[in-house]
Design a protein around this nucleic acid. Structure first.
Length: 506
RNA sequence: GCGCCCCUAGCUCAACGGUGGAGCACCGGACACUUAAUCCGGAGGUUGGGUGGUUCGAGUCCCCCGGGGCGCACCA
C-alpha cells in the first residue's frame, strides 16, 4: 500500500472513516515503536480452529490439556474485562476463543492485545484449555500482529447487505457474510468433484484458445478485441466446442475443459457476460453416453457439495436422485400441446401452434426453430423434476449429428430442472460435407444479417476431413448448477467477481 | 433497451415537508470467565451527485445524472 493510494482514499471517503483508519494506523505505529514488527514475513502455525474443536469436543469445563498450539487468523471479537480478556480468532477452518490473562502474557502479547482491532490478522500461542464456562479456548501467552486491518470490518452481527458492495468488494462480503462463504464453498466443492469424476473416467483436462479469430461452437454475440502484434481483430470465445473436437481428431479420445465463456449479451439474474461451462467429448460414444456422463457429473456434484439430492429452488422442491427420465421432445410437446409437431410440418401450421400457445413467431424462423421455441417457451418452464429432453431439430443444432431415420432431427439432449436448461449434449456431427453444408446455410443467413446464425468455420471443416470418430459431447452450465445446489436465485451470487459497471467516482 | 424500487455515520437501520437519531464499531474510563460481555462518558454526517426546481423551510416532493436490485425483452 503506497502513500499515494492512501491519500486518494482519504480524499475519496468521508472524514469519519479517515479517523477510524488513522486510529488503527496509530496503533500499528505504537507497536512498531515498541519494537514489535507489525508486518512479520511469516508465521508457523501448528493447529486449525476446527481441528481443535473436533478433537476436544465435549471436554469438561476448566480443563487443561497440556497441548501447546500456534494459531493464526482474524480477530472477529474482543471482550475485555480488565486484566482478563477474551478474543475470537477465525481461520479458514472455523473459529476458537483465545483467553488472555494479563499476568500470563509476554510483553509483546500485551502490546499486541492493546493495539488489536477487529479484523486484524494475528498469531497466537498457548495451551488448549476450557474456560470456567466450558468453552474450548487457547490460553495464550504469545501474540503476534500479522497484518493490520486498517479499515473497519462490517458489523459482525448484521454483516454486509448492500449488493453493490458485496459484488464490488467480494473479499469483504466473504469475511463478513457466512452465507456468501457457504455458496462459494459449494461451488468449489462441486467443481472439484466434477474434475475428479472426469479424471476417474480418464478424460484429459485441456485448455483451448479464448482469443479466437472466429467465435464459434455456439450461437451468440461475442466480445471483440484486437491483437497489436498481428494487427488483427479477435473475438473472445463463446464456447470451446470446435477446438475440443479438433483435439479428439488429434487423438485425445476423451477431453474436457472447464471453460470460461464470454457472450456480449444481456445481463440478468440468469445471465452473466462471462460464465463457466464444463464441456466434454468422448470418442466412440453417442448422445446416450453424454446423458450418462451428465447425470453422473451433476449427481456427483450435488453429493459432494451439499451431501444430498433434495434442493428447494424458488417455489419448487426437486429430487436430483438419479437416474432421470429420458423423454423425446416431440412426445413431450405432443402431450403438452395436444398436437404432434415436427420440423417437416408446414411452416404456417407450426406458426399457428405457436400463436395458439402464446409464442409470437418471428417471420425469419424456420420450422425447426418454431418447434424449438415451443419447447423453450411452453414446455421447458413446466419441467421441474430433472428430465433429459431428447431429440432436437437439426435446424437449431448446427454441430449435431442427425438422427439415423430422420434427417431433420438431431441426436441431441437438454437436461431440464426447475424449468431451466442445465446441460446440452449430442452425438457430434462428424461428416465433413454435411458440416460444410450446414455452415453454408448458416453463413448465408449470417450475411443476410441474422446475428443468430453460426459462422462458417472452414478450418474446422478441414479438421473434420482428417476424421472425427463417432463422438459424444456435452456442455454443463456450471454457474446455473451452482445456483441450483446453493439455492440462490442470482447468478452474480455464485460468481466471485461479477461484471459490473465502473464504480462511481462521485 | 423499457418499467418499478433502492442509495442516510465504517456496518445495520430510524427520522409526518419542521433542529438528522439509535444499535454495533471507534475514543476515554471501570471491570479476573466472557461469548452480540456489561456499566459510565465522548466523538463521529455535504442524507449517492446536482450554484437544478417547488416551498418560509427538502433526507423527505419534482427534474437531471451516477450506481445497484427486481420484472420484461435477447440469451445459456
Amino acid at each position: 500500500m503506497t502513500n499515494e493510494t492512501d491519500q486518494q482514499s482519504d480524499e475519496a471517503t468521508a472524514p469519519t472513516i479517515d479517523a477510524l483508519i488513522a486510529e488503527r494506523r496509530r496503533k500499528r505505529e505504537t507497536l512498531a515503536e515498541q519494537g514489535f514488527d507489525p508486518y512479520p514475513s511469516r508465521f508457523d502455525r501448528t493447529a486449525l480452529a476446527d481441528d481443535l474443536q473436533e478433537r476436544h469436543a465435549g471436554l469438561e469445563k476448566d480443563t487443561r490439556t497440556g497441548e501447546q498450539v500456534r494459531l493464526a487468523g482474524r480477530v472477529t471479537a474482543v471482550r475485555r474485562h480488565g486484566k482478563l480478556s477474551f478474543a475470537t480468532l477465525a481461520d479458514a477452518s472455523g473459529s476458537i476463543q483465545l483467553l488472555l490473562q494479563a499476568a500470563a502474557l509476554s510483553d509483546q502479547a500485551a502490546a499486541v492485545l492493546e493495539a488489536v482491532d477487529l479484523g486484524d490478522w494475528i498469531g497466537a500461542e498457548g495451551e488448549v484449555i476450557t474456560s470456567r464456562r466450558g468453552e474450548l479456548s487457547v490460553d495464550a501467552t504469545e501474540l503476534w500482529l500479522l497484518s493490520k486491518a486498517l479499515r473497519p470490518l462490517p458489523d459482525k452481527w448484521h454483516g454486509l447487505t448492500e449488493t453493490d458492495t458485496r459484488y464490488r468488494q467480494r473479499e469483504v462480503d466473504l469475511l463478513a457474510n457466512p452465507d456468501s462463504r457457504r455458496v462459494f464453498d459449494i461451488r468449489f466443492k462441486a467443481i472439484a468433484a466434477m474434475r475428479r469424476h472426469m479424471e476417474s473416467e480418464h478424460y484429459v483436462e485441456v485448455e483451448t484458445p479464448i482469443l479466437q479469430l472466429q467465435a464459434g461452437g455456439a450461437i451468440a454475440r461475442p466480445f471483440s478485441t484486437h491483437s497489436n502484434a498481428l494487427d488483427i481483430d479477435l473475438h473472445l470465445r463463446i464456447a470451446p466446442e470446435l477446438y475440443l473436437k479438433r483435439l479428439v481428431i488429434g487423438g485425445y479420445e476423451r477431453v474436457f475443459e472447464i471453460a470460461r465463456n464470454f457472450r456480449n449479451e444481456g445481463i440478468s439474474t440468469r445471465h452473466s457476460p462471462e460464465f463457466t461451462a464444463l464441456e466434454a467429448y468422448r470418442a466412440f460414444g453417442d448422445v446416450t453416453d453424454g446423458m450418462d456422463l451428465t447425470e453422473a457429473l451433476v449427481a456427483g456434484a450435488a453429493q459432494a457439495a451439499i451431501g444430498r439430492f433434495g434442493v428447494a429452488f424458488g417455489d419448487s422442491e426437486v429430487d436430483l436422485t438419479p437416474p432421470w427420465p429420458r423423454l423425446a421432445l416431440l412426445d413431450l410437446l405432443e402431450e403438452r400441446l395436444g398436437v404432434r409437431v415436427h420440423p417437416t410440418d408446414p411452416v404456417d401450421d407450426l406458426r399457428g401452434v405457436c400463436e395458439a400457445h402464446g409464442v409470437t413467431p418471428n417471420p425469419e424462423w424456420g420450422p425447426g426453430k418454431l418447434v424449438f421455441e415451443l419447447y423453450d417457451q411452453v414446455l421447458l418452464p413446466g419441467l421441474v423434476a430433472p428430465v433429459f429432453v431428447c431429440g432436437f431439430p437439426v435446424e437449431v443444432s448446427p454441430l449435431a449429428r442427425h438422427t439415423a431415420d430422420d434427417p431433420t432431427m438431431a441426436d441431441r439432449f437438454e437436461l431440464c430442472i426447475v424449468g431451466r436448461e442445465f446441460a446440452n449434449g449430442y452425438s457430434e456431427l462428424n461428416i465433413p460435407e454435411e458440416q460444410a453444408a450446414r455452415f453454408e446455410v448458416s453463413a448465408a443467413a449470417k450475411s443476410r444479417g441474422d446475428d443468430e446464425a453460426h459462422p462458417a468455420d472452414l478450418a474446422f471443416v478441414r479438421s473434420l476431413q482428417y476424421g472425427l470418430p463417432p463422438t459424444a459431447g456435452i456442455g454443463v452450465g456450471i454457474d446455473r448448477l451452482i445456483m441450483l445446489l446453493a439455492e440462490v436465485e442470482a447468478i452474480r451470487d455464485v460468481i466471485l467477481f461479477p461484471m459490473l459497471r465502473p464504480e462511481s467516482t462521485e
